[in-house]
């Protein structure tokens, strides 16, 4: 599978003046390499604040990265002029995290879906309306919904409108930022079904962002797990779910409650919470919470405290950034 999108060494920081003067800076994305094959669905998973949204926006150049490259279908996106970028924008679209916030409350649904068609002059005026109607049908909504305002829709319907709007430019790549996180399970399953159908029908390539592994198993071909701005595990989703190699991925999986009362297990295998990216831990950013790094006497492995683990290929298509990956016979060799 040749890559449609490929990012290398992507970094993005945010900075502002601190309360007492002086600059404060955090690295929201801190050195990410990834590629997405044509027609593939890659899931980007991590807890809130891990940098998923920022990474997604950098990949589409909705945010300017501080460093790194992004190639889309052979083109270096970061080198494009504003004008050329705008022209290519139709091919890459994003569905935003907060569907209520992403839609304009004062505009009817139909007008919002028509907007990208008009901006990019994708259809003559008379064709816009039928096109909007067709898009609504594509996402499983009645044509009559074009006349409604966003607040008159349910959460699931609003997400579908967001998807219709993104599809209006006939993109090749769709980045969906937590499209189902805020929805009830019953609605979630339907929306996932729709996305799967669209994917094969329109031959879409997708990056699906989620904070919970349970949401992506059904749709993702591969998963990339993120922690404090870095990818810490990547691989085919079946393999990652069956045998996670990074301790953080393992704890994310253990925390998903199995819907079977006969199989109760310990859910909380990892203490603490994701630290602030303003003060990331030295060495492996996961080390303060990692149970693998903790030795019998309670001390933390020195390598984990001092040395940042690189994302390395273990075997086949599996990569992890850990000095002591699970299921490995011996610790990673020192570089």
């Amino acid at each position: 599978m040749s890559a449609l999108l490929e990012a290398r060494g992507l970094r993005k920081s945010f900075s502002w003046r601190g309360q007492w003067g002086g600059e404060r800076r955090l690295w929201a994305v801190d050195g990410v390499d990834l590629e997405v094959g044509r027609g593939e669905c890659l899931a980007l998973v991590g807890e809130s604040g891990s940098g998923k949204t920022t990474l997604g926006r950098c990949l589409l150049r909705l945010l300017e990265p501080d460093a790194g490259t992004v190639r889309f279908a052979g083109t270096d996106l970061l080198a494009l002029s504003d004008r050329d970028l705008r022209r290519r924008r139709t091919e890459l679209q994003m569905v935003f995290q907060d569907s209520a916030g992403a839609l304009d409350p004062r505009l009817r649904v139909g007008a919002q879906i028509a907007e990208p068609i008009r901006i990019h002059r994708l259809a003559p005026g008379a064709d816009v309306e039928p096109r909007v109607a067709a898009l609504l049908e594509t996402v499983g909504l009645a044509r009559s919904l074009a006349e409604r305002y966003p607040h008159q829709l349910s959460g699931g319907q609003r997400q579908r409108v967001g998807i219709a709007r993104a599809l209006a430019t006939e993109p090749r790549l769709l980045i969906l930022d937590e499209p189902v996180s805020a929805l009830d399970v019953s609605v979630r399953a339907q929306l996932l079904g729709l996305l799967q159908e669209l994917r094969s029908r329109l031959q879409l390539t997708m990056i699906f962002i989620a904070h919970d592994l349970a949401m992506v198993e059904q749709i993702a071909d591969r998963v990339a797990v993120m922690y404090l701005g870095r990818l810490i595990e990547m691989g085919p989703s079946r393999e990652v779910f069956a045998a996670p190699r990074h301790p953080y991925t393992a704890s994310l999986l253990a925390a998903v409650p199995v819907p079977d009362p006969k199989r109760r297990s310990r859910l909380a295998t990892t203490p603490g919470e994701i630290p602030s990216p303003l003060a990331p831990p030295a060495g492996c950013a996961f080390h303060p919470r990692c149970t693998v790094a903790r030795q019998e006497d309670g001390a933390i492995q020195r390598r984990c405290r001092e040395q940042v683990p690189e994302l390395r290929t273990l075997e086949g298509d599996r990569r992890t950034a850990c000095h002591y990956p699970r299921g490995a016979k011996e610790p990673a060799k020192l570089a």
Binding site: E47, L252, A255, V256, A268
Partner: peptide
Amino acid sequence: DVTVQAQVI
């Protein structure tokens, strides 16, 4: 987040 949800449960 899921790991924190697990702790609260």
